[in-house]
């Protein structure tokens, strides 16, 4: 009973305790390696990226063009029907300027991140990617952007075959 309890249990270890190593912590590193199967849809998607193209899947029932592509429509719950080549241009749906890296350490140069709704896919079908060749203060929601690809020889069938999206000249 909250107000009747005077003593809440627990012993805090402060930052200083840790720095001074006042407790007998145990350190352990764990580096499991994985090889993930890309599956039917994403294998094809990665192959197309290697060729400098973006491919989607269409569901003939709801008529949505889905990207990233999937072999089933999660709304109609049936297999999707056909491959559709879409454009490498799109619109910034939302964006962020990230000053932290994966492990929350601060970055010297921020990463520009955006959800880009791709042209040729159904409205709102975005993918996560980076922005480049743009001042952070100039990024706007609704801005038209285009993929900047790696050289064909450098592509490896990965999402990073697109280096980033840059503003499309008006």
């Amino acid at each position: 009973m909250s107000q009747k309890i005077t003593n809440y249990p627990g012993h805090e270890i402060t930052h200083e305790d840790q720095k001074e190593r006042r407790y007998l912590d145990i350190e352990y590193k764990f580096v499991p390696r994985y090889s993930w199967a890309a599956g039917v849809a994403i294998s094809r998607f990665l192959d197309e990226l290697k060729e400098g193209r973006i491919i989607a899947r269409k569901c003939n029932q709801c008529e949505r063009i889905l990207v990233p592509p999937r072999m089933y429509c999660e709304q109609c719950y049936r297999p999707t029907d056909q491959w559709v080549q879409i454009k490498d241009t799109g619109t910034v749906n939302t964006f962020s300027i990230s000053h932290v890296g994966t492990d929350a350490r601060r970055l010297k140069t921020p990463i520009l991140v955006a959800v880009v709704d791709l042209d040729g896919a159904s409205p709102g079908m975005g993918i996560l990617h980076n922005l480049g060749e743009v001042e952070p203060s100039n990024i706007r929601i609704g801005m038209k952007v285009q993929a900047v690809w790696k050289q064909p020889s450098e592509r490896q069938g990965a999402i990073t075959d697109i280096r980033y999206f840059k503003p499309l000249e008006a």
Binding site: D25, Y34, W36, I42, S43
Partner: peptide, 15 residues
């Protein structure tokens, strides 16, 4: 296609 990577983790456990 397969994609190979790791999820490296480091822990400092309290006893």
């Amino acid at each position: 296609r397969h994609w190979t990577d790791s999820i490296p983790l480091e822990f400092h456990y309290t006893a």
